[in-house]
Design a protein around this nucleic acid. Structure first.
Lengths: 221, 221
DNA sequence: TCATTATATGACCAGCAGTCACTTTATTCA
DNA sequence: TGAATAAAGTGACTGCTGGTCATATAATGA
């Protein structure tokens, strides 16, 4: 039924309107005290309607964050894989960090939803969505690392462990650019992206080699 | 006046009681919905009294977090500086990560207070306290890096930039151990601490050398 | 003993998240 | 066509909670 289809589209469109209005209102440091009434006003709908789309205010946060990460993973998965693993890893960092910088209005919500306890207080559906995102990222990076080791571009080592190092560096750098963006600390962001990418590369290349070279000796003295 | 003194001590002691009671109640995933009344009950005082010590509920979060970090920095600043810079950096990671793991009950509050917008909504006093913590850490690590470069233990490069790389890795690793602790993802934590420390060392050693060695060539192909 | 000050308290208030009975709109089918 | 049914929208209402403040209580000292 075409008409049913359109109604469905309308309904989904309205969801986007709510999310858009929310995001607008959330782009300030007091975003946590934005009320559902305010969101309803901004979206030009009744308050009750919001609860037809989201089971709670927090679910709006979650959906915004999920959408943000869908966009990120789409870009990351589109990165050309036919180059050296190191180049690809470098691009992942660059693409991801620029993606974050290009949508700074998401930084507060996203950080809020990253909290360990946040996800645990939500529906199965939301949890699964976050879980799926994690595994998409894990697979993407994991494959690059494995391939890199096979092609001897990356020193052989435990992929799982190397992945967690990458992830650590990745999460940390996202945090840093967004903190930098907020002006809490002045960082020249473009320079930073270049440097942290190099740092990550040095870590990936150096980690597996560590047992065999002088680094270990200095370190373990 | 000895009596005035004792009253002051009593008052300060009460603050610790409130913080302790709060921390206890906060050790669950629903910690954000713990009410001030519950805290008052647990601390066996009236609700009004809490507001004699803290200007808002959020200030309790902030004070807990500050106390946690005071403890961390105390331990970090006590690390023996008379060894190679690389050893010291490694110890900083080890000490810090073990410190975090030894007080998992702080992980939710601390993560909550790390948010970029959190600090901005608090009194000058709280802001300054956080600022001071940051600069203590920055100085500690910055000095180690500078000394390391002087002693040729670390390749010479921009200290500021290298610091941000360290910081990135540090923040990321804290996140990872605490996420791991919560069981969202299973990580063998002791193994992880060893590996991420090595990763960081490889990064620090590799970053400055990057221009002169083959890493750069592979990466910049 | 009483006046004064300092501290503790919980009843109270305002504001907000979330609900639900009702209205409005769209769709179906007799 | 229009009556019946379904679906979506709505905002007045409720219960709860953070924060306040007038009062109670205790300590000090004259």
């Amino acid at each position: 039924m075409g008409i049913t289809e359109r109604k469905k589209r309308d309904f989904e469109h309205r969801e986007q309107v709510i999310l858009g209005a929310s995001l607008n209102l959330f782009d300030c440091d007091e975003w946590l005290s934005v009320t559902v009434d305010q969101i309803a006003d901004a979206a030009e709908i009744g308050k009750g309607t919001i609860y037809k789309h989201f089971s709670s205010k927090e679910e709006i946060y979650a959906k915004l964050t999920l959408d943000f990460y869908y966009g990120l993973l789409e870009q990351l998965e589109r990165i050309d894989q036919n180059r050296s693993s190191i180049s690809i890893l470098g691009d992942i960092f660059k693409v991801a960090l620029h993606y974050h910088l290009s949508q700074p209005e998401f930084r507060r919500v996203t950080q809020y939803c990253k909290r360990i306890d946040f996800k645990k207080n939500h529906s199965e559906e939301i949890c699964n969505a976050f879980e799926k995102l994690d595994s998409r990222f894990r697979n993407l990076v994991g494959d690059i690392l494995s391939t890199g080791m096979e092609k001897n571009e990356i020193p052989r080592t435990n992929v799982r462990q190397l992945y967690y190092c990458m992830k650590t560096c990745f999460d940390g750098s996202v945090d840093t650019v967004w903190t930098g963006y907020s002006g809490l600390e002045k960082v020249d962001i473009d320079e930073y992206i270049k440097i942290i990418t190099q740092f990550m590369v040095a870590g990936v290349l150096g980690l597996g080699d560590l047992e065999n070279n002088q680094i270990a000796k200095v370190y373990l003295n």
